[in-house]
Simulated assay, not measured.
Amino acid sequence: MITPALPANEAERLEALHRNDIMDTVPEREYDDITLLASRICGTPMALVGLIDDRRQWFKSKVGFEGEETRRDLTFCAHAILKPEETMVVPDALQDKRFFDNPSVTDGLKVRFYAGTPLMSPDQQVLGTLCVIDPEPRKGLDPAQLEALEALAREVTTQMELRLAKKTLAEKNADLEKLNAQKNQFIGMAAHDLRNPLQVVSGYSKLLSNNLLGALSADQGKVMESINRNCELVLKLVDDLLAISKIESGELQLDLQAADIIPVLRKNVELNGFLAESKRIRISFGADSESLPVRMDAFKIEQVLNNLIQNAVKFSHPDKTIDVRTEKKGGMIVVSVKDEGQGI
Score class of each variant (00 low, 15 high):
3 T>H: 12
12 E>A: 05
14 L>Q: 01
14 L>K: 00
17 L>G: 01
20 N>T: 02
27 P>D: 13
28 E>H: 09
28 E>R: 03
29 R>G: 15
32 D>L: 07
34 I>Y: 10
37 L>W: 08
37 L>Q: 06
38 A>D: 05
38 A>Q: 04
48 L>G: 06
49 V>M: 04
51 L>M: 01
57 Q>A: 06
58 W>V: 00
60 K>V: 05
61 S>D: 05
61 S>N: 06
63 V>L: 10
64 G>H: 09
65 F>G: 05
66 E>V: 11
67 G>Y: 06
68 E>W: 13
70 T>M: 03
74 L>A: 01
74 L>M: 07
79 H>S: 11
91 P>R: 00
92 D>W: 08
94 L>K: 07
95 Q>G: 15
96 D>R: 08
101 D>V: 12
103 P>D: 04
104 S>M: 15
110 K>L: 14
113 F>T: 07
115 A>R: 02
115 A>D: 00
118 P>I: 02
124 Q>W: 00
125 Q>S: 03
125 Q>V: 00
126 V>Y: 03
129 T>K: 08
134 D>G: 04
138 R>P: 01
144 A>R: 11
146 L>T: 02
149 L>R: 07
149 L>Y: 03
150 E>G: 09
154 R>N: 10
154 R>M: 12
156 V>F: 02
172 K>D: 08
177 E>L: 15
178 K>H: 11
186 F>N: 12
186 F>W: 13
188 G>W: 05
188 G>H: 08
192 H>N: 13
194 L>P: 00
196 N>E: 15
197 P>C: 07
198 L>N: 03
204 Y>I: 11
205 S>I: 10
205 S>P: 09
207 L>P: 05
208 L>K: 05
209 S>Q: 14
212 L>I: 07
215 A>E: 10
221 G>P: 00
227 I>K: 02
227 I>Y: 04
229 R>P: 10
232 E>D: 04
235 L>V: 10
236 K>Y: 14
240 D>C: 10
243 A>N: 07
245 S>T: 01
254 L>R: 15
254 L>P: 13
254 L>Y: 15
258 A>D: 13
259 A>V: 13
260 D>F: 06
261 I>F: 01
263 P>D: 09
267 K>P: 13
272 N>R: 12
274 F>Y: 14
276 A>H: 06
276 A>L: 11
277 E>L: 13
279 K>T: 12
283 I>A: 02
285 F>Q: 03
296 M>K: 06
303 Q>Y: 01
305 L>Y: 04
306 N>T: 14
310 Q>S: 15
313 V>Q: 06
314 K>F: 14
314 K>G: 12
318 P>Y: 15
319 D>N: 14
330 G>L: 04
333 I>V: 13
336 S>I: 00
343 G>E: 09
344 I>Q: 15
